[in-house]
C-alpha cells in the first residue's frame, strides 16, 4: 500500500513538474514528514526490510570495524553528515542531541545515536573521534561510522538520503533523521533542522518497548 502511495507521489511529482514549468514559481511538495510502516518482527531471521541486510562494513570512531548487524537489538537514530560541514550539520548535531536529551533515560539504555559520514575520505576514525569529543558525544550512546564510497552511497540509498559533492570542501545533502527498530527496519523519518521532534522521540520510545 505504502509503495503504491510512493509511486503515486512519483507520478504526481512528474505531472506537477509539467504544470509548474508553465504556471507557477512555487514547488510546494510537502515532504517534511515521512512515516514508514511499523514492522513487527522479533523472530530470528532478519526482516526483509532490515538495513542489516546490507553486507557493508564500517569503521567506528574508535577505529573498530563493525557490520551493521552488530547493532541489532538496539533502537538506532541515524543521520548522515560530514564533519567539515559548516552549514546544516551543526544544526543536525544539535537536533540529535536534543532528541537524545528528550528521550527517557530508560529508553536511552536501549538506543544508539549514529552519525554516518558522507565524506569518508576526509572523515577518518581519528577525525570522527575528535568530532565526538568536541561535541561531547564521546561515550557509548553515540556512534560515528565511516565506510567506503560505494557502501556510503548504498547506505544513503536505503535511507533515501541524497547528497552530492559541490566543491572540494562541501556537500549538498538531505537533512533527514531516521529511526530504526531493533531489527534494523526503518520506522520513522523526518526532515529536520529545528523542526518539531516530538514524533521522532515517540518513535524511539515506542520501539524500545516493542
Amino acid at each position: 500500500m505504502k509503495k503504491k502511495i510512493q509511486r503515486m507521489k512519483l507520478y504526481k511529482l512528474m505531472f506537477l513538474s509539467i504544470l509548474l514549468l508553465g504556471t507557477s514559481c512555487k514547488n510546494n511538495e510537502n515532504k517534511s514528514e515521512k512515516s514508514e510502516p511499523v514492522a513487527q518482527a522479533e523472530a530470528e531471521p532478519l526482516p526483509e526490510m532490515s538495513v542489516f541486510q546490507l553486507p557493508s562494513s564500517w569503521t567506528t570512531q574508535e577505529g573498530e570495524d563493525i557490520q551493521l548487524e552488530e547493532l541489532r537489538g538496539e533502537v538506532l537514530v541515524m543521520v548522515m553528515i560530514y564533519t567539515s560541514c559548516q552549514a546544516a550539520c551543526p544544526r543536525l548535531v544539535a537536533d540529535m542531541r536534543n532528541i537524545q536529551k528528550k528521550v527517557s533515560e530508560e529508553a536511552n539504555k536501549e538506543t544508539k545515536y549514529v552519525f554516518v559520514s558522507i565524506d569518508p575520505e576526509v572523515d577518518t576514525p581519528e577525525r570522527l573521534k575528535t568530532f565526538a569529543k568536541e561535541n561531547e558525544m564521546d561515550n557509548d550512546q553515540w556512534l560515528f561510522l565511516r565506510g567506503d564510497l560505494e557502501d556510503t552511497r548504498e547506505f544513503a540509498a536505503v535511507l533515501a538520503v541524497n547528497y552530492k559533492r559541490i566543491s572540494p570542501m562541501d556537500f549538498s545533502h538531505s537533512n533527514i533523521i531516521s529511526v530504526f527498530d531493533k531489527d534494523g527496519v526503518l520506522v520513522h523519518q523526518k526532515e529536520v533542522l529545528g523542526t518539531d521532534d516530538t514524533q521522532t522521540i515517540e518513535a524511539v520510545e515506542q520501539h524500545v518497548i516493542d
Partner: peptide, 20 residues
C-alpha cells in the same frame, strides 16, 4: 541519489525558481 531538487537548501530552491 546525488540529485537534490526538493528545495532542501536555499541554493536548490533558487535553482528551481530559476528554472520555473
Amino acid at each position: 541519489n546525488s540529485v537534490i531538487i526538493s528545495g532542501e537548501t536555499r541554493r536548490d530552491e533558487n535553482q528551481d525558481n530559476n528554472l520555473f
